[in-house]
Design a protein around this nucleic acid. Structure first.
Lengths: 221, 221
DNA sequence: GATACCATTTTGGGATACCAAACTGGTATC
DNA sequence: GATACCAGTTTGGTATCCCAAAATGGTATC
């Protein structure tokens, strides 16, 4: 694998894993030293991550994008538009076996599964469902939106009950998709996204002080 | 302005203006010489344009993205999802004066207006309408989709009648938005996009031979 | 004439050198 | 003590150099 992809992947993981906090300044030279690459691949990686919204310009320099509550709400609206469109397409032509694969992903999580894995599967559910639409642009839109949301979801305080409810909603959406009931699937997915947004925003707004204390930049809505 | 932005802007204009044909190979060294910049800004520009879908990798090298009929159809579906969502938001809270600004854009085109300007205003109509939604992600999605479509629209054979029909549809959408009739605006916009796609795909499919003869790579649906 | 093969050139990926602008820390001044 | 100012350092932007891999083109072979 090329150095550029290497730096990009590792830096992305550090940002998404909150090993580098939202709002932190980045210097090309620090990244260079940290990953043992020269500035050429570092710059390429930063340019890529900028388009993903994970880093941004701060005057002349680079900054890990802060977590922005207003942005999270806007992403939820965007997600709703593209995911609902995608699931409608999926209902029209997806094969049951493809739905089974996604259902198996959900099944793979149980009481022993680490929280991080639940987090990942919860995102992949939406991404893979969008992939089944067969529309590359809807798929990418969902994938990119989930990437932008993923740090916030990491911070979210999720109780067991909320997690169970989310999984039940996921299964209900799959059931509707399996029957080809586009309206029902759209309705359920839409409600799921709105509910998910509400819980997320509430959780983060309540915990904003704590997050700031941990050194994370959190911008108000 | 920095060299990077300069190279990016000029190269984008050349690609969108078909001064460099779809499917043509690009070398970093050629761009370097063409714009009098060194490879660093050239590479940054290429990375950016890659995320816009205007250039792509061809093995190790770079290629101006060919015009892909299947992709155009997928973009239309994507556009429909995000533009309809945006216009619904716009109906909920946009001020009449903001609608007036867009209407004025439409008015600015008359019989003496060059074709290129009609083309640009036709795109800006959709972009500015999406901007009024206030949702940054829906806005960017529309803007990026229009960018990807713009080369194809340039090639499209548009008769006067079709252009007039499109403008009438634009005005009808604005009228609905002004009244805050979200359902009606959504319906009209959706029909407009579908009709626009049909005309575009038909036109390009019929003219594919001619386009290839002019040296443009056009990929079948 | 087609093809396999090799020398040469070209090209993108990476590393490094240089510069001007921005930042930093300390100092003199009021 | 606050502030204006200046030297030194850091940093991103750019240019340039090096390299291995890929493309190229000519040639020998069948």
């Amino acid at each position: 694998m090329s150095q550029m992809q290497n730096v990009e992947r590792q830096l992305r993981e550090m940002i998404l894993g909150l090993e580098i906090g939202p709002g932190e300044k980045l210097t090309e030279r620090w990244i260079e030293g940290r990953f043992g690459a020269s500035r050429t691949p570092v710059r390429a990686a930063l340019l890529r991550l900028e388009t993903e919204g994970l880093v941004g310009r701060d005057g002349r320099g680079w900054t890990v994008s802060p977590i922005n509550l207003a942005e999270l709400e806007q992403i939820a609206v965007y997600r709703e538009a593209v995911e609902v469109a995608a699931v409608r397409l999926t209902c029209m032509h997806a094969e049951s076996s493809a739905i089974d694969v996604i259902e198996a992903m959900l099944d793979s999580c149980d009481d022993n599964t680490p929280r991080e894995e639940w987090h990942r599967v919860g995102m992949d559910f939406h991404i893979e469902l969008a992939r089944l639409s067969g529309n590359e642009f809807l798929f990418r839109a969902v994938r990119d939106a989930m990437t932008r949301l993923s740090r916030a979801r990491w911070l979210e305080v999720r109780d067991e009950a909320a997690l169970g409810r989310a999984w039940a909603e996921h299964r209900a959406i799959l059931a509707a998709a399996r029957l080809g009931d586009a309206d029902q699937a759209a309705r359920l997915l839409s409600a799921h996204i709105v509910g998910s947004r509400d819980r997320l925003v509430t959780s983060l707004a309540n915990d904003r002080r704590g997050l700031r204390a941990r050194g994370f930049a959190v911008v108000a809505a």
